[in-house]
Design a protein around this nucleic acid. Structure first.
Lengths: 226, 226
DNA sequence: TGCATAGTTCGATGATAGTCGAAGCATAAT
DNA sequence: ATTATGCTTCGACTATCATCGAACTATGCA
């Protein structure tokens, strides 16, 4: 019976309350950071770290680094299926696995990721800049084209100040609610700041949600329609 | 997240090497006794008891008492499916779950259960006696009819001696390879002994397998054809 | 540059649970 | 009745592991 230990290994991983809580928090398909998972399961950050690295090593989770955050998600559909079976047997109501991110519609539409725009509007911005070749990818790196630089300055971005900084101007950032990329980096931050100064968006209190004003929506749609 | 603990409970049950070994021994669908499972997993009988009662309480196993034996089996198809998923994820080859008992064809055909005949021949014997109303069920108990008593004496069974004993003459016994009943009790034992004295069957060394001789097969088929 | 935040490593502590020897109970065989 | 066998209970030992305080590293931000 040489194969047996492996099933016990997975069982052990599933057999801890804290880990089980983390896993079921991940059941809705959204990736969560280490500290979110620590919160969710009610343990300290240190403890969460040990659990997460165990589940990572055990193949239950996968990891996506994003700046100083680490986003954890279920490693595969098979793992999700296993958990669903398990929950079914345990007689729990199975939490609906909505594979596309935040429940909240407003959050799906627009939210802050670090200090830049994420959500479906973030992706439309990113796609539009790429389609108009204002933003180009060269050898895997994202950069503004000449037209792009002129466009941004015209849009009210202090481009020279940004270029002086050491932090990268353009970076792409994986959007966990849409599973697509959006624009990050100091340019991403500057664009969001510009949106705010133009009153296109307002921040919601104690939340990452961004509210587009009516005027802001119209202007955004006109500017980034393609 | 009130439902979470349950999945950890099942996980804990799966997360022990000894229990995992017992469970995969049960994957082929045959029920096994406590001591067989202790052997299979390499622990003492005491330890096996604690594991088995935990899995029983946890709903992983079900129990069928049979005399002084306790037969354990996977509680349901759901549990079996869970284990298969788990093994698939663990990267083991999944043991084929043959739901009907012993692999060995000879063992499926005829074997010793306590001291009586089990396996497909045991069931043919039982069915035949019932069909000919030599054996009858009255208020849930099994008994020989008048014709049955005459038949048995004619067949060479010392019926009076058996009736003198305190042990029950006729009992039915669930056959784990066929999932049907066969004849047990002192009559069952006596019939097997008679088969042996007539050289219909021989016992195999260090095994529960019974070998029917060629003559034995013919005689058995003629006698219990219906 | 300095500060704040996210995450990690280390060491100590405490609880849980698997293990078996020894003794006990229940059923079957003689 | 006596013996043998299957299984259980009890108690003690041990190993494992989750947990957290404290100190540390790395990244982002101003």
């Amino acid at each position: 019976m040489q194969g047996t230990p492996n099933i016990a290994r997975i069982g052990t991983l599933l057999g801890d309350n804290t880990r089980a809580q983390m896993l079921s928090a991940l059941m809705h398909g959204k990736a969560l950071t280490a500290s979110e998972l620590a919160n969710e399961s009610g343990v300290t950050a240190q403890t969460a770290t040990t659990h997460l690295s165990k589940m990572l090593a055990g193949g239950l989770l996968k990891l996506e680094r994003q700046g100083r955050h680490k986003y954890f998600a279920l490693a595969s559909e098979d793992i999700a299926a296993l958990l669903e079976t398990l929950m079914g047997l345990a007689g729990n109501e199975v939490p609906l696995r909505t594979l596309t991110g935040p429940r909240d519609a407003a959050m799906r539409e627009a939210r802050i990721c670090y200090n830049h725009l994420a959500g479906s509007r973030g992706i439309r911005l990113y796609d539009s800049l790429l389609a108009r070749r204002l933003l180009v990818t060269s050898s895997g790196n994202l950069a503004l084209s000449g037209a792009g630089e002129r466009y941004m300055m015209n849009f009210g971005i202090e481009l020279e100040a940004l270029k002086a900084s050491r932090t990268p101007l353009c970076r792409s950032c994986l959007d966990w609610s849409e599973r697509r990329s959006h624009l990050a980096g100091s340019l991403g931050r500057a664009i969001l700041a510009r949106f705010e100064s133009m009153r296109w968006v307002k921040r919601e209190q104690n939340s990452r949600v961004l509210i587009f004003t009516r005027a802001g929506k119209q202007a955004f749609d006109a500017e980034f329609s393609r």
